[in-house]
Design a protein around this nucleic acid. Structure first.
Lengths: 152, 152
DNA sequence: TAGTTTTCCTACCTGATTGGTAGGGATAAT
DNA sequence: ATTATCCCTACCAATCAGGTAGGAAAACTA
């Protein structure tokens, strides 16, 4: 269960746009510098996000990127799906397409439950939540225990 | 967020062992056949699980594999960690080792929350739960809604 | 002791994915 | 016309995923 560099970069770039003045545009180069992301690599990611309808772009001298929707209307799940495809997969296929037999039969509901859980977090948190630093209650509850921060 | 073939196979193999007569051993070949897993590939996985202390093996004529612990004491998280390493990582590193700056600062708590959530599911379900077909209440609750089974 | 059956170990392989880089074309403003 | 920016295509090296092959080591059986 790994979050790819692409997804991580995409979210950080989106946050950088979200934090900028509303209405204004930000150059890819600036985002790259602010978040220490390789510039050309980031360009590709921003392009994916544009095709996915998350950001809008402007070419030319005072060009750059801006979010295509209000920050509250873009969830982290939206971003990850746009750059990396389905949130959760097993052997590359999405849980509902799986089929198990014998003692493994109830493995399917387990993967489904896992996916629901991941969705709840990633769909439930918006760019607005992150830039404000206030995660939704049920999410920030999860980070309370010290064990949440410990490696096993 | 993908579950690898290795992890999927490992859990299914463990379930097959869990479903066998307690005390008896099962040959890799039988597990492979029952779950349609490539035999030699499975051998490697069972070996990982042996080194990880999850299964025990016996060579020779009536040899095979059996679980090294009671089925209630082996969680799905245990299995995945043994074959694939850390449950959740971002760009290959575990969340607590990350550091973000500027508007991305509260991204870290988000990944932490995500990891806690994944842990709750995968550490909270044992082989015993799966072979009995009864998932813990809080897990099976998640699979109730029809939307849980729908692709986005 | 010889033979059989199983696990165990090492090495290898192919294709896809990840995380980039390079160079230049299209477009918008000055 | 120039400049600044996005946009597009192609390429690349390293790693990983998923799997195969062959045989050595151990345990039992006759």
């Amino acid at each position: 269960m790994r979050i790819s560099a692409k997804a991580d970069y995409a979210v950080r770039a989106a946050l950088q746009l979200a934090a900028a003045e509303p209405g204004g545009t930000v150059k890819a180069e600036c985002v790259a510098e602010a978040q220490e992301i390789p510039h050309k690599f980031l360009e590709g990611i921003l392009n994916d996000m544009r095709r996915g309808g998350l950001v809008a772009s402007q070419r030319g001298v005072n060009g750059g990127y801006r979010l295509a929707k209000p920050t509250e209307d873009i969830s982290i799940a939206d971003i990850i799906r746009v750059v990396d495809g389905p949130l959760v997969s097993v052997r590359g296929v999405r849980p509902p397409e799986l089929s198990y037999s014998g003692p493994a039969e109830s493995l399917l509901p387990l993967w489904i439950a896992l996916r629901v859980n991941v969705r709840q977090i990633l769909e439930g948190v918006s760019l607005a939540d992150l830039v404000s630093g206030r995660l939704p209650g049920e999410v920030s509850l999860l980070t309370d225990s010290p064990s949440a921060w410990a490696n096993p």
